[in-house]
Design a protein around this nucleic acid. Structure first.
Lengths: 235, 235
DNA sequence: AGGGCTATGTCCGCTGCCGCACATAGCTCG
DNA sequence: CGAGCTATGTGCGGCAGCGGACATAGCCCT
């Protein structure tokens, strides 16, 4: 595996050297592939992930079955907030969406690093707030905006998180993330492609015209991006 | 104002006596009426509320205008988590939904009470986790369940929070909370009434048949209730 | 008593998405 | 090179909820 610097993760990057050095030996760089689970509903969350290029999805279950995406996490965050918040388990699940590396830390490792009131604690507090804002916006977005707008928004957000303009994504997967039928994604994706905004082929998608996509996407994209900047960017 | 014991709030109730006594002199019991704002989007959150009978609603804005309810807070919680999480402002708003008393505390008062790693800190961490679970479930619920199910669920939750089987609520208000048209609420509420589950009249609603309502509501009600119990009840 | 306001009931045409089903094209592997 | 799988395209009937508009009824105030 190519050595990746854990400092590619914004949360880790903001830590002062002393605190980071204490954490460093406990971090393990691992590669995830789509659908790898970080934690499952009701099972103990025993590891947290600081994505270094991978993107993860949090989903909520309905009737113990249908999974609806409630938020995504990339290099700006951490997967495993329930550990930070003192919960052993969560009713939600988290899994890999886009392949890539992450810095992994055991739950005890995180808890140990949090004793006292250091920078990590504060950083994770701000990330928690950012996550709550993301969840809130998603509640609103899901009930107000139509599939096409949300698909465009999702693609923009994912591009931000992976930092590449091409990544693996099937229509089937995107349909699950948006909570719509695959057939609906087929229609809206076809529309975006013939408008020259994206290009896709058998599970690989490329963003061609970002500004164009932004015009199609709902304002939730901009709203969240600027709020994340404000909360997590300002240091 | 009738003196209400701040210990009616579960978060305050779980505090050990020493910590509560330190907080007590800073708490002020206040009465809220529907639509009273606790905080507004982008403005500093300068007070937090521990509801003692009132119910509050958090809403997210879309296009700076349309407000969609993302969660509710009653005696089990606190309004003003952004303060705890170190944010000065929030893009969301919070306002009173059902009239009643709360224990109010200034933002600085809360911050002062949090120095060191006491029980309040831990309690609020667990409440933060509970709130995130609530938000997640609402994302899923909004995209999967139909208006009738969600209305029933909302009524059940609100009844739990106010602790009475009759409270003030107009169809117009409920429509905003559910993110549907008032006309839609008129139809589903009419259905619930003729099924003998509820009774309402000009802004006052009474829950007649709780078990019946539970059969109509989506499982999100039970899911969340048991998760809140698990996180906040176990002490 | 009457005027106005608020809360509620109801109707129409429309649209976005659903459930279901089937068709096709590219990739992979024996 | 053909079999089979996976990813994508498409069509049809149906329904929930929308936007917009209008009607009625109870309440309050004068």
């Amino acid at each position: 595996m190519p050595e990746v610097d854990p400092r590619n993760n914004s949360l880790l990057r903001t830590l002062p050297a002393t605190e980071y050095d204490r954490l460093r030996p406990r971090l393990e760089v691992v590669e995830s592939t789509p659908r790898d689970q970080v934690y499952a509903p009701g099972k103990p969350v025993d590891q947290v992930y600081f994505p270094l290029g991978a993107v993860f999805s949090m989903v909520a279950l309905v009737a113990g079955e249908v999974a609806v995406e409630v938020g995504t996490i990339g290099t700006e965050g951490m997967v495993g907030l329930p550990v930070f918040l003192g919960a052993v388990t969560s009713p939600n699940a988290a899994f890999c969406q886009i392949a890539g590396p992450s810095a992994r830390l055991s739950a005890e490792g995180l808890r140990a690093a949090l004793v006292g009131d250091g920078a990590l604690h504060q950083t994770l507090h701000r990330f928690t707030q950012a996550t709550m804002v993301q969840l809130s916006q998603n509640v609103a977005c899901n009930s107000v905006h139509v599939a096409g707008q949300r698909a465009a928004r999702w693609l923009l957000t994912t591009q931000d998180r992976v930092g590449r303009d091409e990544f693996e994504l099937t229509q089937d997967f995107l349909a699950q993330m948006l909570g719509v039928r695959r057939a609906t994604v087929s229609e809206v994706a076809g529309g975006l492609q013939s408008a020259g905004l994206i290009h896709y082929n058998r599970g690989v998608i490329a963003i061609i015209d970002r500004p164009g996509l932004q015009r199609v996407a709902c304002e939730c994209y901009e709203t969240l991006r600027s709020e994340f900047d404000r909360l997590l960017g300002g240091d």
